[in-house]
Design a protein around this nucleic acid. Sequence first.
RNA 1: UGGGGUAUGGUGCAAUCGGCAGCACGACUGACUCUGGAUCAGUUGAUUGAGGUUCAAAUCCUUGUACCCCAGCCA
Length: 555
Amino acid sequence: MTISEPKDFIREQVIQDNETNRFGGRVVTRFPPEPNGYLHIGHAKAIHADFGVAQSFGGHCNLRFDDTNPTKEEQEYVDAIQYDIRWLGYDWGDNLFFASDYFEQLYAWAVKLIQDGKAYVDDLTADEIRAYRGTLTEPGRASPYRERSVAENLDLFARMRAGEFPDGAKVLRAKIDMASGNLNLRDPVMYRIRHATHHRTGDAWCIYPMYDWAHGQSDAIEGVTHSLCSLEYQDHRPLYDWFLDQLGIHHPQQIEFARLNLTNTVTSKRKLLQLVNEGIVAGWDDPRMRTISGLRRRGYTPEAIRDFCDRVGLAKKPNVIEVALLEHCLREDLNKRALRVMGVLNPVKVVIENYPADQSEELEAVNNPEDPNAGTRKIPFTRELWIEQSDFMLDPPKKFFRLAPGAEVRLRWAYIIRCTGVVKNDAGEITQINCTYDPATRGANPIDRKVKGTIHWVSAAHALPAEIRLYEELFPQARPDEDENWQANANHASLQVIRDAVVEPTLADAAPFQHYQFERTGYFVVDPDSKPGALVFNRSVGLKDTWGKLEKQAS
RNA sequence: UGGGGUAUGGUGCAAUCGGCAGCACGACUGACUCUGGAUCAGUUGAUUGAGGUUCAAAUCCUUGUACCCCAGCCA
């Protein structure tokens, strides 16, 4: 690892382990998703930690699906998770594993624990086990089945596997300490009976290992050295260590860090699933969702997400990151790469009275001022244009640098125009703005006066219709799920669809997931729903808007 | 005294042996600008409380306080 890399407490630990030669200098991590939902921004942090730490030390990171609960897991999720991790830019090479691949080994180890008198078959019901477990402040009591003979346990456990008992009739438990202050050590369940079809092992098994029993042993099998997980597993570490010690097998170091929390965001698979199932959003990839697929569709880039993960850091302190940081990372990435184009969301017609109706010209526009290699393009200019309604005011306040009666404004890449009057309909709405243009101001500033404002426009004759989807926060409040009734916090007006926007003709062939900056408006991405002739754009994030801020302060 | 954790500006992360509390986001000024974008310059603002040790404490000691996690046959 080079000196310039960040040294969070996890990397410090690894450095120490390498110095003491604890794992022979090897560094192996793993990312262990359960395939029961889609990945979200919180997983991105974990992935970034798991793959990033391994990479820092020239090690590798396994992708291991923690598929020990057949009633909740599906192949669909296995596929989606792999797609998302790859899209984020991480590579597990050949190291794709499944906890279900280890079921046979896990079973053999369980038998060994029984033989050693360290595990037993319990006939108590789930409710009874809970009652016997005691409470946070009172010790538990031993199950009446705790002292069964090894032979009987062996027999019963074999028959559990053989399918002789119905769901819930028996479990295998580790025999540890019913009085421990750590509830996880009060004879945790290792196996439960589930006559369910598993997405990979089919009907080969009807007993399935619990997380605590499967996880550490899977880490050991894979030669993992540093097993990174979130804070809530701190209480499980003694159990993780206990199993490994009883078995006397390779013993990785579990290290816990604080999971990511984001303002205005729910990150809980259960809640995300609810948003989808209850139709509050359109699906897992709804651009308002901070799932990886939702962020992708919203126009986030892997680079922006990785940069974000870098900046949030890695520590044990529970945290809530402001979404502003996420948005900052996106803007910073897109500013360097997104091609600039002009699009008018809420058009109003401008007629340039002294520009001949039969005339048109091609003006050169810079594609990205931040990137000379992006080149230039030609955009058509004619007598009739669309401009943004908000770029005109009949009675403008001070510091409004745009178009108003008698005022001048620069048309981006084109001429300076002066407003001479407006046309209104019967309802009093402005339907047309009349202007004159100054032919001397193409590519040049006037010498006798200063024109401060520049606005974007699209030639009416060449404009392409477009649908534009604007998003606000799904949850306007910073911490939506502090509330028991968190779903009620959802803003059902968080998606605004504009169907009559117009964009410049160079966008005719814009392909899904292409990023653009609509000048002065924001960053937009082509939605997968988009087709030539029926363009659809999502606003990824707005540009910083100091004028908008002024307006807000004024109101 | 059930067990396990965490406390540094509004937010997140640093400060390696006890040695000038730093970086980023945000907010606020200003400069510049054919994007009210970008860029540049600057300002604001923090060590959980109380004692103690020390020339010197975010860091060491004592003692409080607050917050988070744990009682699934989920992970």
